[in-house]
Amino acid sequence: MTEITENEDAHEFRSEAVSLWRITFAPLIWAVHFAACYGATALVCAKDGAVDGLRLGIGIGTGVALVAIVWLGWQAWQQWDLVRDRDWENDQGTGEDRHQFLGHAAFLLAVISFIGVSYVALPALLIGTCR
């Protein structure tokens, strides 16, 4: 009896390990975008202050980051599966609930990452000077 449960747990854990990783992707993109924006700005402003190229680069990078985050968010949304079962909490200790809960968490993290990336980019796009 116990042996079977352990096996099931192990199997379940393996299949969930992927979505456990997945929930970190959106915040990871946010972190990389943040560091890249600040680093590039500091470098360009310390060197020659050629902000036009910098702003273009930040604009493109932000576009790519946002598309990636939207895609991750969409995946997570489907994993959460809210529309079909209307289950917000997924609070039963079942494999399905665990799976959907990770989707829920990943979705919320994608939303906050989307906001974070947008707000980080705004100053670079709206202020055309290093000063």
């Binding site: 947008s118 707000y119 705004l122 100053p123 709206l126 202020i127």
Partner: peptide, 8 residues
Amino acid sequence: GGLLVYSL
């Protein structure tokens, strides 16, 4: 977002 776009 609106306030940022207005003030920046």
